[in-house]
């Protein structure tokens, strides 16, 4: 499947069909999920209506982490096999990933404002996500500042891999810091275990919806990138053909 899709032309064909499917699925899941989470599911016993923030927060956090894993994997593929489609994929994941990280932070902060009575708490998870946001911005900046695409792809791939190796260490250290150096927040973060089905149904719907939305965003970006690259290549072929080479011995 992956090798089959590795050809850009085949990927374009595949994307033409699958892209809209994801768009429709995303719209459907999110609409149904919103209706479920806002009207059908009950308020939670302790947290009240603020529990509904979880239906956006948890899927955002999930996408934020999944997007970075995809960036790291495509960075690896791009670095080792120099496959341009992997570059496109990694690059396309970055902006949605950063946006969902930001959304997870904002929703977390809103939830904190009612539960912890503060918009920002230096809680392990919030701190980790803030760091993740900086990592995303760093990764995107590399693509932004490097005009040479080959170099940008390789450096971005390396940085993504180094980031992926360090993420678990960062996560672990921040949790440690949260436990030892600073007082625990009284109520645990959203997504605590032991949720009943009335909460899980809208949560899973929203997760499916966000995943489809993310997939649609990535596929669309990759398609645009490939189209741009092909257009540039065809312009180049007209104006900038390789040099003619003549080899001759001296008389």
């Amino acid at each position: 499947m992956i090798t089959w899709l590795a050809n850009p032309l085949r990927f374009l064909k595949f994307a033409k069909v699958v892209g809209p499917v994801f768009a429709v699925l995303a719209a459907g899941f999110i609409a149904f999920g919103l209706w479920q989470s806002l009207f059908v599911s009950p308020a939670e016993m302790y947290q009240g209506d603020s529990v509904r923030i979880m239906y956006v927060h948890v899927p955002s956090a999930w996408i934020a982490m999944m997007a970075y894993s995809m960036i790291a994997v495509s960075g690896f593929i791009s670095y080792v096999w120099r496959h341009p489609l992997a570059d496109n994929l990694g690059r396309a994941c970055a902006l949605p990933g950063a946006v969902f990280t930001f959304l997870a932070l904002v929703t977390g902060s809103l939830w904190g404002s009612v539960t912890w009575m503060t918009y920002w708490e230096w809680d392990g998870r919030m701190t980790s996500f803030l760091i993740l946001l900086f990592i995303y911005i760093g990764y995107m900046s590399i693509w932004a500042v490097m005009e040479d695409r080959k170099r940008a792809a390789r450096i971005a791939g390396l940085v993504a891999m180094v980031g992926a190796i360090n993420l678990p260490i960062i996560k672990f250290s921040v949790d440690w810091w949260d436990d030892t150096l600073h007082q625990k927040a009284t109520i645990s973060s959203p997504g605590a275990p032991g949720l009943g089905p009335e909460f899980l149904t809208p949560l899973f719907l929203m997760m499916a919806g966000f995943t489809c939305l993310f997939a649609w965003m990535v596929i669309t970006t990759v398609v645009t990138d490939i189209a741009k690259a092909r257009k540039a290549a065809s312009v180049r072929a007209k104006t900038n053909a390789p040099a003619n080479v003549t080899i001759e011995a001296a008389p």
């Binding site: 760091i131 900086f134 760093g138 900046s141 180094v162 960062i170 250290s173 440690w176 030892t180 150096l181």
Partner: peptide
């Protein structure tokens, strides 16, 4: 990674700081 980007100072900090956090945390602990 940022050789030849003379204005890469802030970007260098952006790339480096997240990686430094574990060292800082354990260093103080």
């Amino acid at each position: 990674c940022l050789i030849s980007y003379r204005s890469g100072g802030l970007l260098l900090i952006l790339l480096t700081v997240p990686l430094m956090i574990p060292t800082l945390i354990f260093g103080l602990s």
